[in-house]
């Protein structure tokens, strides 16, 4: 087999992997503050993409659409927190898993009926014509994905490390009770984390849509791989998701090349189950301790 084809596969897979990493990063944000994640995050990606598409169709220029889409994603994140997560966390039950699945289903059905079941193209000013770099084809679209992913993750990390609010965010994840005693409201911090997580998901939707087209099912495969990346890397692993995301993206690209596109989803799923067997807290995760 020609190495350049393999390399090509690896590189374009890696770009997709960055999007998985971005969504997985959104899971980390909410997991840090509340030990919960939104199982309907895929629907959030999809709804934000549809909303952004509508903004574009209304005649908004691309660069104004982006903040609009992000705001919409953040708002959806807040809805999920209020309707799906808060009550269950107060009751210390795991009802939130069911509730976020349910809210996702509701969003899916709404999208199906509002925007239709067909896939639609997502216009973008960025060219999809390939550039040749060292014998590999790379499109500016792919590069824009990478830039977008790092911009958003960088911005959120900067926020977490350099602002007091961000430090408060970390304080809540370290010790919720103690943070409350400092005057930091845990409820609001969890809301913030869901808002940020929704925003991150929206960004993923906007970045990926020009490549995959927009449709109600656009995120169902995407989200499974984001779950896999989050669990394999560890739900508290920070930038570990980027490495695992790139690895998984490349791996599945190779898998679909050798075994057929139907097997595309398999490596992520196998990796997830294997990771739980070998390192339940993820490759980069911290081990947890039982307490009495």
């Amino acid at each position: 087999m020609d190495t350049s084809i393999i390399l090509q596969m690896v590189v374009s897979g890696a770009f997709m992997g960055l999007v998985y990493a971005l969504i997985a990063y959104g899971f980390q944000l909410t997991f840090a503050t509340s030990k919960s994640i939104n199982f309907g995050q895929g629907e959030l990606v999809m709804l934000s993409a549809f909303f952004s598409l509508t903004l574009l169709n209304l005649g908004l220029p691309y660069w104004l659409m982006v903040p609009g889409g992000l705001l919409f994603g953040a708002a959806l994140g807040l809805v999920v927190e209020r309707a799906g997560v808060r009550l269950a966390l107060e009751q210390k039950s795991e009802g939130w898993i069911l509730l976020t699945i349910i809210l996702g289903l509701l969003g899916f059905s709404a999208a199906e009926n509002i925007w239709g079941r067909d896939d639609r193209p997502f216009p973008t000013p960025i060219s999809a014509d390939a550039l040749h770099v060292f014998g590999i084809n790379i499109t500016p679209l792919e590069i824009s994905v990478a830039i977008g992913v790092f911009l958003v993750m960088g911005a959120v990390e900067l926020f977490k490390r350099k602002t007091l609010m961000g430090k408060a965010f970390e304080a809540v994840s370290a010790d919720r009770d103690a943070a409350e005693l400092m005057g930091i409201s845990a409820t609001r911090t969890i809301m913030l984390s869901y808002g940020l997580s929704g925003m991150v998901a929206a960004m993923a939707g906007i970045l990926i849509s020009p490549i995959t087209t927009v449709g109600p099912t656009m995120a169902s495969a995407l989200i499974l791989k984001a779950f896999a990346v989050a669990v394999v890397a560890g739900l508290d692993s920070g930038f570990g998701v980027v490495l695992i995301g790139i690895f998984l993206g490349a791996l599945e690209s190779l898998t679909s090349f050798y075994l057929g596109s139907g097997w595309r989803e398999a490596p992520g799923l196998v990796l997830l189950i294997l990771a739980l067997a070998v390192r339940p807290n993820g490759v980069f995760g911290k081990s947890t301790m039982r307490k009495v």
Partner: peptide, 10 residues
């Protein structure tokens, strides 16, 4: 919790 649900989903 979530990890178990995710594993079954996968």
């Amino acid at each position: 919790g979530p990890q178990f649900a995710l594993a079954t989903l996968s």
